[in-house]
Design a protein around this nucleic acid. Structure first.
Lengths: 231, 231
DNA sequence: CGCGGCTTTGATGTTCATCAAGTAAAGTGG
DNA sequence: CCACTTTACTTGATGAACATCAAAGCCGCG
């Protein structure tokens, strides 16, 4: 399934300064020894709910979704994770099993670090632990904030919110290709697929966005921001 | 406003083993020096959104709500915190300011530990940091899980959920006094006050619960669980 | 070619918030 | 302690927001 890559060394990783600022060369070499790097194609599972958590994993490249499936087989997307978001952070220190599934929504590269040596390093290096603590705190803050935001808005506001999210926080451009199907967007912001489509069309008619398949361009940013804020 | 208590020593605190298992006597004495204990009456503010976070705080006794106020003056309750939930955990390591307000919903005692010496101790003692990491992870997992749960249910299911929550996780009894007004329950599970009342009355008519003011008794636990699960 | 999945639009009905009005409870000032 | 005000609670009626159903077009794939 997932292709195992010719693993690069953490010491040379571009993300080192962002993620592991407080580790020295020895510590990095140590973790590097317990590290695997895997490549996933769009649509492939990276982890499945109830799998045991044996590794700490983070996204080096790509885009993934974290989601749960409820008793009616309906998916609920908890969060979209992009590189530098520690994907495995949500439950890695509090649970033995994944509480959700992870799937690549763009071709992705994921680093796997065995959990035991990582924990060892955390215990040995308090600065590193503090760093992880801060990042974890930030990520969960962010997820929870977005969830509260979505919960308290009505549909037009939710669509505006999610479009602004992709534009501002993922692609850094006013035009982008939606990495999610209409159905997945519905699952992310808790509404029906039909209404996702309907409201997107509405925005198109109002000249707020233009749509070509999954290609979206935001034409009137101010209007969208107003809808996000007051909708 | 809040009464400052004759501070007890952390070394003798009953919660020590639960919260600070991995600290030795010296470390505890050190933190104890930077600790204040305050008492709040029901309804009093413990912290307000945008206050600077200078202390790490945790609830020793009582019950508090964490909430935000939106642009329409409507409150949104993020979470109810009970003793042993680190109240200040949500943003304490990721933000300089509180992202939400905290208010006592029962008479409460809160411990304040200055943030700087706490962080110092975290850096010096990796085991302690690891412990905090695990607890923080658990708490945010829990809050997020509940939020997702609430978002994906309709109203009857939400009411069932929140009644079961108080019964199972807060009071450990089938009968209890609701610490929240009907309005606050509405703010916690994102619905209108009128519908909270309506559905509670419905449950009363169906003999699932009995109501006497804020006194609630669950009469038919199985029915409530069914509604929680399938509603 | 035909099948299944994704997208789109319209029609219909349900769920829910809002409005209105009334009662009970709880605080406030004389 | 009682009139007065305010706040919480309650019920019913109405309409808006939204999900669901139905049908049709579109595309990729075996």
């Amino acid at each position: 399934m997932a292709e195992i890559l010719n693993t690069s060394n953490c010491n040379e990783c571009a993300f080192r300064s962002v993620l592991f600022e407080n580790l020295n060369h020895e510590e990095l070499d140590y973790l590097n020894f317990y590290k695997t790097e895997k490549k996933f194609l769009k649509g492939e599972f990276i982890a499945e709910e109830n799998d045991p958590i044996n590794e700490f994993l983070y996204l080096k490249k790509g885009l993934v979704k974290l989601f749960k499936v409820d008793r009616n087989q309906r998916e609920h997307i908890i969060s979209i994770a992009k590189p530098l978001n520690f994907v495995g952070f949500l439950s890695v220190f509090s649970n033995k099993k994944y509480q959700y599934s992870i799937k690549a929504i763009e071709d992705s590269i994921v680093c796997y670090i065995d959990l035991a040596p990582l924990k060892e390093t955390l215990v040995r290096n308090g600065l590193f632990a503090m760093e992880v603590l801060e990042k974890l705190n930030k990520i969960t803050d962010d997820i929870l904030g977005k969830r509260l935001n979505i919960c308290s808005k009505q549909l037009r506001g939710r669509i505006a919110f999610i479009l602004l999210y992709f534009s501002r926080e993922v692609y850094f451009r006013p035009s982008f290709e939606l990495p999610l199907s209409r159905k997945e967007i519905a699952e992310l912001i808790e509404m029906s697929t039909e209404n996702v489509i309907r409201i997107l069309s509405e925005f198109r008619k109002d000249q707020i966005i233009s749509i070509a398949g999954s290609e979206i361009e935001i034409l009137n940013m101010e209007a969208l921001e107003r809808i996000d804020k007051f909708g």
